[in-house]
Amino acid sequence: MPLAEGRKLSIYRIEDLPDSHLLKVLGIRKGTQFIIQSKQPFKGPIVVKVGNRSIAIDYDIAKKIEVEEVA
């Protein structure tokens, strides 16, 4: 499912994502596991926590990132 539809405080793993240099250097890569830290109103960015870094991802980009929930 797209990251944009994820729930706050749930843990996900990235299955597929657009090819973007900045995403890669920020550590958002295939296989990365993260927790959704917050979602913002009015389709604002999704903030994910990878390790101990918080990364804000635009809603439209989050729609293109495929994730799977990790039990």
């Binding site: 913002q40 009015f42 389709k43 604002g44 903030v47 804000a56 635009d58 809603y59």
Partner: peptide, 19 residues
């Protein structure tokens, strides 16, 4: 400040600019 940018992004995007 970047935190205010994240919080304001949803609203500012309505007028076409990023948070």
């Amino acid at each position: 400040l970047p935190r205010i940018g994240v919080l304001a992004d949803g609203i500012l995007r309505r007028i076409g600019i990023q948070g």
